[in-house]
Design a binder for these strands. Structure first.
Length: 572
DNA sequence: AAAACGCGCGCG
DNA sequence: AAAGCGCGCGCGTTTT
């Protein structure tokens, strides 16, 4: 069953559709629902396990979750349309051809909200007030036609090499990701403000008055002014700092910490400490706590489709950059555990599978892939093998990594060829595509302009721009296919956790197992102690399922390492 | 005064 | 030890 949900002046409009996007023969009429009635109506329909079709998950699902309604599956027209419009698998379809002319939704655009909670006051007037605000951006009929067009495009994708199946899987996984993101934002990461406060006080001293440096930073700044002989120095100003360093004979070209570390001047130690603590204070200090942690939960906004490769981005709170320094504040509730799982060395394993490199696959049977690769081709030197492989995936040209490339190519020609081909394609303006069919964006205007270069200087510049795009497409196939895998892993895990909750896992502990965090190749589940074993099994099963969905039965493993801990800093 | 840019650094 | 990819954010600085 497919149900389309659209904004309507009266609140919302609901219509049952066929899988292809036609009005359902037995029940072709749309009906309108007031905003207040929507949660109850949706909940009643959910009993029939429909796939909910809507413009953007972020417009609908947060409000429904707020009203206590959790749903199983959806189809996000905006996210799926973006994939279909660019996918090479669908490039020959009418949908992709017309999509080039129509603006595609920007995934990074903030969502409008239809149901409580109301958006912050400063933007409330724009999006608020059903009936009083601007007309909905898309009518029910427009969205129905959009869905039908997307399904027609999908039906037009070749079944060769299971391309249609793979793309369909990607659309389902992307839509599931959108739901997971909304659910995780709703749930939040368990965050102990008191522990965070202890960490801050330990490093910085007591909380300072607003606009002031904490005691420890002030002390270090004073020390630096003395050591560098600049009484008014503001160490936060790179310009002032650079001048002060030069005056003391410290000839750095930037104030980056790895360059500073080269110098042995007595000011360098305190300066590096200042930089580290200053970062902690400004990025994850007391104001961060005030702004982002509420009621013991950190609720970041995830932006599914925010990265062209298919990775998620986030907005506000730096959710995808929680520094190791403060991970001790991420703490399970009483009677609960955090299960932190990450896919070990995901990208190189994905490369092995993509390239069907049997030699590398054999080496990758080792739990430690880099050690396995080192054994064959690098005389057991793990560090060398790792640097070489990372260089191959990122397009290293110089340094040790660049020098090791030929050595890697001798033993593993298929894997190296695979990324080299992706690079060549990108350099010449072509498109590359992930395992499930997400394609790279077209070259930038800069790239096109540089193609028409005349002088030798312009020519050199053009080659640099081309190489830069080559590094991007080289990495895109690996990073993007890893994101494909991770999206499937997450979707499979979500499904299993829903089953565990439905079966009553953790009912006594006051809250069943929940996904609370996802970071590229890592998931965190917050689970009652007695559900931990079932959850770890679910995580492993989901990983195995993801591999098979992407690649079928191939002799490449995607092991996950799992830590069951009370706080995040104890994981790996 | 506000917006845009560049630096530096956190994460994978 | 940093370099090759992908991000977000806060600060200082420059431009509008």
């Amino acid at each position: 069953m497919y149900v389309l949900l659209a904004a309507h002046p009266a609140g919302a409009a609901v219509q049952e559709l066929t899988p292809a996007g036609d009005p359902a023969p037995g029940n072709p009429e749309a009906r309108t629902v007031t905003q207040g009635d929507l949660p109850a109506v949706v909940r009643a329909l959910e009993d029939r396990r429909p796939r909910w079709i809507w413009h953007r998950t972020q417009d609908w699902y947060p409000g429904l979750l707020q009203a206590g309604v959790e749903l199983e599956r959806c189809y996000d027209l905006s996210l799926c349309g973006n994939i279909l419009a660019f996918s090479e698998f669908a490039a020959h379809t009418d949908y992709a051809r017309t999509a080039e002319r129509t603006a595609v939704d920007d995934p990074a655009m903030p969502p409008k909200t239809l149901l409580p909670p109301a958006p912050p006051a400063d933007q409330g007037a724009l999006f608020d007030a059903v009936g009083a605000g601007p007309a909905p951006r898309h009518t029910l009929e427009e969205l129905r036609l959009e869905y039908a067009a997307q399904q027609a495009a999908l039906a037009g994708v070749s079944t060769d090499a299971n391309m249609r199946g793979r793309l369909q899987l990607l659309l389902a996984a992307e839509s599931a990701a959108a739901m997971t993101a909304a659910e995780m934002q709703h749930t939040g990461v368990p965050w102990r403000e008191d522990l965070h406060g202890d960490i801050l006080a330990g490093h910085l001293g007591p909380r300072p008055a607003p606009g002031h440096r904490p005691a420890r930073l002030e002390q270090l700044a004073a020390e630096l002014r003395g050591l560098l002989g600049v009484p008014a120095l503001n160490p936060d100003s790179p310009q002032e700092l650079m001048r002060a360093l030069h005056r003391n004979g410290i000839e750095v070209k930037s104030t980056r910490k790895w360059e500073l570390r080269e110098s042995s001047h007595p000011a360098i130690g305190p300066l590096l400490e200042y930089k580290q603590l200053s970062r902690l204070h400004t990025a994850n200090g007391w104001s961060w706590l005030d702004a982002w942690v509420d009621g013991g939960r950190f609720r970041p906004e995830y932006v599914v489709g925010g990265v062209v490769s298919g990775r998620w981005a986030s907005r506000g709170g730096g959710a995808l950059q929680i520094p190791r320094q403060v991970r001790g504040a991420v703490h399970a509730d009483p009677g609960h555990k955090l299960i932190v799982a990450d896919a070990s060395q995901l990208e190189p394993r994905v490369l092995v599978a993509l390239a069907r490199d049997a030699v590398m696959a054999e080496a990758a049977r080792d739990q430690d892939l880099y050690a396995g690769i080192a054994e064959k081709g690098f005389g057991g030197d793990r560090a060398k093998a790792k640097v070489a492989l990372l260089g191959a995936m990122y397009g290293a040209t110089s340094g040790e990594s660049g020098r090791l490339m030929p050595q890697l190519a001798r033993t593993y020609p298929r894997a190296v060829d695979f990324v080299e081909r992706a690079a060549r394609t990108g350099e010449s303006g072509g498109t590359v595509t992930t395992r499930l069919g997400r394609s790279s964006p077209p070259p930038s205007d800069r790239w096109y302009q540089s193609q028409r270069s005349a002088t030798a200087e312009e020519q050199r510049r053009a080659e640099a721009i081309a190489r830069s795009r080559g590094r991007f497409t080289r990495n895109f196939v690996v990073q993007g296919s890893a994101a494909d895998w991770a999206a499937c892993w997450l979707a499979e895990l979500r499904r299993r956790l829903r089953t565990l909750r439905a079966d009553g896992a953790g009912a006594r502990a006051g809250g069943g197992p929940e996904l609370v965090f996802f970071l590229h190749d890592e998931v965190m589940v917050h689970a009652p102690a007695d559900a931990v074993d079932a959850c770890t099994r679910a995580i492993e099963e989901a990983a195995a399922a993801a591999k098979e969905l992407l690649f079928g039965r191939i002799p490449v493993e995607f092991p996950v390492s799992i830590a069951v801990v009370d706080s995040y800093d104890r994981a790996k």
